[in-house]
Amino acid sequence: MSVDNITHLGGTGIDELVPSRYALTVGDIEVLVISDGVLPITASTMATNAEPAAYSAWLKEMFLPPEILDWPLNVAVVRSAGKTILIDSGLGTEFPDFPRAGQLGLRLAAAGIDPASVTDVVLTHLHMDHIGGLLVDGLRNKLRPDLRVHVAAAEAEFWESPDFSRTVMPAPIPDVLRRTATAFLDLYRGQLRAFDEEYEVAPGVLLRRTGGHTPGHSIVRIESRGEALTFAGDAVFQPGFEQPGWQNGFEHDPEESARVRVRLLGELAASGEQLVATHLPFPSVCHVAAAGNAFRVVPAVWDY
């Protein structure tokens, strides 16, 4: 994988009317953000503690519908020092109610990336829209047998007996999340490389456990030659810039999630580093600016 090959595929990939990938470099490290599609969710799930009138006004200002939202799903492929690292794997194809998500296999092919070239997988957490792609036979059976799968030890432990008491999800979702995480752990337990707080999976690619969203939720910071980008997983959602205290229904510890969000956005605003997050509109590459007691998102200029 190289940025040149990705950006100028010619006839080697799948022709797409709308490109599903965005390539950039962070110093000497290559990063490719890939859209896994979009997932419909109940709008209220994205701000469960917001005052209804304030949230309705925010949705209207953002030109978003009041009932059902299309939630973007972004993953990334990173290449550093000979390692090819997949960050999260999207939803997979086991959920027929969500036909516009679970596109990772097709979109790796469109980018000219052979799944067998992936040496490591990093999982921000074990929710189904982050691990489902690894459960799809069409992708799983193409992965190398010595694949290393990195996840926080606290995350793997949590899903042995998960607690949903503080989440606010549609009724069927907890059972689906539990079942999917169990299937994933059963399949990949022998390939898991658990870490406690931090782990450098390749030069300049550092995993850091934040907790909050789930006990083992982690982010990935990519740094090379004075440039940096953070893949924030589910630490940041679309309302979280202007309203970092609004809680998402999928957060297992909502108060800690808000603290993690404020701390992370504050760090990024101070440093000027780039941000990518799973559920920000594709390609989600942006900067963060401080705005009083909150923040604002500054989208990156696409580089053609």
Rank of each mutant, 00 (worst) to 15 (best):
M1C: 05
D4I: 08
N5I: 03
T7I: 02
T7H: 01
G11F: 00
I14M: 00
D15Y: 00
V18M: 02
V18Q: 04
S20N: 11
A23S: 14
V26N: 03
V26Y: 06
L32S: 02
V33S: 04
I34V: 15
I34A: 07
I41F: 12
T42R: 13
T42E: 15
A43E: 06
S44R: 15
S44A: 15
E51R: 13
Y55E: 06
L59C: 08
E61N: 13
F63V: 03
E67V: 12
D70Q: 15
P72N: 07
R79F: 02
R79I: 04
R79S: 15
G82E: 07
G82T: 07
G82D: 07
I85D: 05
L86P: 01
D88Q: 08
E94Q: 13
P96I: 07
P96A: 13
A101P: 03
Q103C: 12
A111N: 01
D114Y: 01
D114V: 01
A116S: 13
T119I: 01
D120T: 08
L126E: 00
D129Y: 04
D129T: 05
I131N: 01
G133E: 04
D137P: 00
R140K: 13
R144F: 04
D146Q: 11
H150F: 15
A153P: 00
E155I: 08
A156L: 09
E157F: 05
F158G: 02
S161W: 03
S161I: 03
R166L: 15
P170W: 06
I173E: 13
L177R: 09
F184E: 09
L185M: 15
L187Y: 11
L187E: 14
R189E: 14
G190D: 14
R193S: 07
R193F: 10
F195K: 01
E198M: 06
G212W: 03
P215F: 08
G216V: 05
S218C: 08
V220W: 03
S224D: 05
S224E: 03
R225P: 00
E227M: 10
A228W: 05
L229C: 07
A232E: 05
G233T: 08
G233I: 04
Q238S: 10
Q238T: 13
P239H: 09
G240W: 02
F241G: 03
F241D: 04
E242C: 02
E242W: 02
N248Y: 15
N248P: 00
E251V: 02
R259G: 06
R261N: 11
L264M: 12
L265G: 09
L265N: 06
G266F: 11
L268P: 05
A270W: 02
A270G: 12
Q274L: 15
V276D: 06
H279K: 02
P283Y: 11
S284K: 08
V285N: 10
H287D: 12
V288Q: 09
A291R: 14
N293V: 09
F295L: 12
V298K: 13
